[in-house]
Design a protein around this nucleic acid. Structure first.
Lengths: 91, 91
DNA sequence: CGGGCTTACGGTGTGCGTAAATATC
DNA sequence: GATATTTACGCACACCGTAAGCCCG
């Protein structure tokens, strides 16, 4: 599991479409499909249903989407906070 | 930034010692040192002071330690939750 | 000097991109 | 038959391990 994988997952979930998500992420579709499948393997359950017009979140995917956003936001906040602590109270 | 980097950071912070942390993580010291330095570069501030007997957390590092633990725990919980949702309410 | 962190260097593994194949409506 | 996802293949980048160097008590 990697942070990139989580970001990829969020993008696909939001777009409900692998091709559009790939365009938005500035990567090609194949690596994105692989990353999603790898994530599903790691979770141990499918996160999307594949349709002819894109993908659709399953309940497990919906939950993971919420949590993934929280985690990614928390990460950004943590870095910002640490950076601030370093500049506010030097040495 | 990577999740491995965060886990490495937590281990070094807990051990206050790169060599011991490396042993605990089952990796060698050089990659661990590099990972920590890379993290500091990304945050934009040092997280430890280097002493002759090991390393010591700076304020920015202490904050990041708390947040990193929260994030890593949240990630594990998120996966467990998604997995549970998939098995509880099948197809 | 001695312990510990850091740089140099070579090898391996993982992920991306292009191109072809497969499946679904 | 067209659109979208998935596999095949080749390549580049990043990470790890071993070995040597540097710094501080």
């Amino acid at each position: 599991m990697s942070l990139a994988q989580l970001r990829y997952f969020v993008a696909v979930a939001e777009e409900q479409h692998v091709t559009r998500a790939a365009r938005r992420l500035h990567i090609a579709q194949p690596p994105l499909t692989r990353a999603i499948r790898s994530l599903e393997d790691e979770v141990g359950a499918p996160l999307f249903t594949r349709t002819a017009r894109g993908v659709r979140l399953l309940p497990a995917g919906a939950i993971l989407l919420t949590r993934a956003r929280e985690i990614l936001d928390a990460l950004d906040a943590a870095v910002a906070e640490a950076r601030r602590a370093a500049t506010d109270a030097p040495h």
